[in-house]
Amino acid sequence: MADKKAPIFLARKSYQRRRLRDASRVLPIAGGIAFMIPLMWHGDDVTERGTSDAMMFVFGVWIVLVLLAALLVRPTREEDEGPTGGEKEQDVL
């Protein structure tokens, strides 16, 4: 019964792998934006933020980026292919 409810979809695994690849492509963009956030802390804010806050924030974003990158590496690369081996599904959607 559960099988019947699932939508018909071929190559579910490789499809998901490609979506995770998309996610890993977004990662640097998201990271770049996040690293810019402290720049908005200028001004005579009441809750004044100092260098130590910026440091905590930057390193926090940094470690999150590392973790996400590490998490995304494995599932995006199921089969181990070197630059000589041909993985050709590159831009398949």
Binding site: R21, S24, F35, T51, A54, L65, V66
Partner: peptide, 21 residues
Amino acid sequence: NGLEFVTIYLGPTLVMVGWWW
């Protein structure tokens, strides 16, 4: 310059994380 030094390492971080590009 305070925290500015860190930019020199953020750039390569983004490039490495975005290796797929």
